[in-house]
């Protein structure tokens, strides 16, 4: 029995191993610059915004659906923080959170009740928000009130993000909702016929994604001190890249592990940080990011994975006999 237990531990630890190896590699290449304590603190600081969005999108992708609007939801929540907090801090934060949740709920409505394909529904929301944003920020970029800058301290942000991540982990691993999300992802018809209220599950996971994007928008606002049309826009593609780096199975479903968004966003930021410390020019960096991402996607593809693992079996002469007994 230990053979399969070892394999299960292996699959659980693999993404973390990838991350450690990546950090080790950059440590060698940057002659130790990348593994200074200050750099680690900085790295974690950079990952905060991405890891929250990734966790939100992770919930949605476990259902086998997509969320293209996460970047723009971050943008509009960042704008709400900047604009409304000038009136009153507390009201500003609440409006930002409500806007995020509202946008998530809208996504949930169009995908589950109107039954639109998730790619198109979230794309429409992205279009609507970008259109609104240019009109909202008619004048100069909206500046975040100075009182909020105190919160941009590493030791304040870390607990906030940790609490949210632990909450999300608990929700995903230890509650009915999390279990149902994985089930809907692997076979939606069977989920409906097992009594799961699939419409409710989709609505909740999109609303949660919206809420997490709102918090990420808040962090972007206090970190950059300004809200503009460009803030947070590349979050959509970065979250997709991060999730794939974290080893998220392409179609979502039961094999989705919660380590994917955390490890994935860390790997993404380590990659960015490491490459810029090495002073690699921006175009080459985009090239490397694209090459690695494509390489990971090819490796994660079903038929290639089986080919690779059977190849490894031949090399290492795996003695695993047909395990399933008829």
């Amino acid at each position: 029995m230990d053979k399969t237990k070892l394999k299960r531990i292996g699959t659980a630890l693999a993404p973390f191993l990838g991350l450690i190896l990546l950090i080790a590699l950059f440590a060698i290449l940057t002659d130790g610059a990348s593994i200074q304590l200050s750099n680690f603190k900085l790295l974690i600081n950079q990952t905060f915004t991405l890891v929250l969005v990734c966790t939100g999108v992770f919930g949605v992708m476990t259902l086998g659906m997509m969320d293209l609007s996460c970047g723009t939801v971050v943008c509009i929540c960042c704008f709400m923080v900047a604009k409304v907090c000038q009136v009153n801090i507390f009201v500003g934060l609440v409006t930002a959170l409500l806007t995020g949740i509202g946008m998530g709920a809208f996504n949930g409505f169009t995908t589950s009740i109107l039954k639109m394909p998730s790619f198109l529904a979230t794309l429409c929301l992205q279009y609507i928000i970008t259109g609104l944003m240019t009109q909202l920020i008619a004048s100069a970029a909206v500046t975040v009130p100075a009182e909020l800058y105190f919160f941009d301290e590493f030791w304040y942000k870390l607990p906030l993000v940790l609490v949210l991540l632990i909450g999300a982990y608990f929700l995903f691993r230890h509650t009915k909702l999390g279990h149902y999300m994985r089930m809907v992802g692997s076979n939606e018809t069977a989920a409906i016929f097992s009594g799961i209220n699939v419409r409710k599950i989709k609505m909740i996971s999109y609303t949660m994604a919206g809420g997490l994007c709102a918090v990420s928008g808040f962090l972007v606002a206090i970190r950059s001190g300004t809200a503009a049309v460009t803030s947070g826009t590349d979050m959509m593609f970065n979250s997709m890249i991060a999730l794939t780096l974290g080893g998220f199975p392409n179609g979502g479903g039961a094999k989705a592990r919660f380590s994917a968004p955390i490890v994935g966003s860390f790997m993404f930021c380590v990659l960015n940080n490491g490459l810029s410390i090495l002073g690699v020019s921006s175009t080459t960096q985009a090239f490397i990011k694209g090459a690695i991402f494509l390489f990971m996607v090819i490796l994660m593809a079903e038929n290639v994975k089986t080919a690779v693992s059977s190849g490894i079996k031949k090399i290492f002469g795996g003695k695993e006999k047909a395990s399933e007994i008829n």
Binding site: H179, M183, N187
Partner: peptide, 15 residues
Amino acid sequence: ESLFAKASIADNINV
């Protein structure tokens, strides 16, 4: 309509 092929037996029963 009733089974989750890519999920474990435990998941299928507990659902």
